[in-house]
Design a protein around this nucleic acid. Structure first.
Ligand SMILES: [Mn+2]
Ligand SMILES: [Mn+2]
Ligand SMILES: [Zn+2]
Ligand SMILES: [Zn+2]
Lengths: 135, 135
DNA sequence: TCCCAGATGCAACAATGTTGCAGGAGTGAT
DNA sequence: ATCACTCCTGCAACATTGTTGCATCTGGGA
């Protein structure tokens, strides 16, 4: 699905930067930090605008986000044409090249918490060395 | 077990700050950020020393650490008298009061990664609202 | 006692996240 | 077309955490 279509469907004004950022996320298909996204944008792109755009996309449910093992948020868009990706899956992070991947075929386990506590979400990162970096 | 005993058993010089920090972690028994640890130390304690001490304790395997949903490391010591805590369990973080707890009775699931990739560790945070904050 | 590895304190920096504000662009109503 | 209003963007500024370098201090072994 096209970035513009997605933005319009969420009643978000379709600006060049938003379109560009969403396009990058859709094309890459893996969780990216704002820094990684920035690398694919024109030189003059503003850090805060990228930050706000990613926050907006997240708030509107267009992307999901994962915190990596360095403590930075990574944002990821899966084509909404494909049956709903709730972000409820584990992620793999390579400690060498830094790449992160969605393990969309996994499903996070049920976790028992203390009585009375309410679970809002689950977050799982599996880290190690990816196949490319192992060679 | 006493902090000094633990430090000696790992051939780490037993200094007042190390003893104090380890004692705090053992007493609280939940993953604490350096900031939280700092709050229980004398005013004049140096930020970097705390940082280095926590790193050391982690490196020596005395404590384990978890990244919380704000992207900061939390360190946690379980009494080594109790049968080995590898830190291989999930954690619950309350989004209201910020407290984090070890779910020591859980066990992280096996996750299938791409062929050729090597898993070094797994990291799972369940977040929501704790029983106290629900009231 | 002397020496040296190790511990600490302080300055300094990087990265990310976050907010405030002013100016600019787009939209819809008149 | 004009105007008003909302929203978007760019820039400055700040907080927090993590991290390193260096000078100094300290404890323990030779
Ligand atoms: Mn994902
Ligand atoms: Mn734990
Ligand atoms: Zn890799
Ligand atoms: Zn709570």
């Amino acid at each position: 699905m096209q970035p513009e279509t997605i933005l319009e469907s969420k009643s978000i004004r379709c600006t060049p930067i938003r379109q560009a950022i969403l396009e990058i996320l859709l094309k890459k298909g893996c969780p990216m930090s704002y820094k990684e996204v920035e690398a694919f944008l024109p030189e003059e792109s503003d850090r805060v605008t990228i930050y706000r755009t990613l926050s907006l996309l997240f708030r509107k449910g267009i992307v999901h986000r994962v915190m990596d093992m360095k403590g930075t948020w990574r944002f990821c868009a899966h084509d909404p044409g494909i049956s709903g990706c709730p972000g409820d899956h584990a992620h793999f992070e390579c400690l060498i090249c830094g790449r992160m991947d969605c393990l969309t075929n996994t499903c996070l386990p049920y976790i028992d918490v203390e009585d009375g506590a309410v679970v809002k979400g689950k977050h799982m990162v599996v880290y190690g060395v990816c196949s490319l970096c192992m060679k």
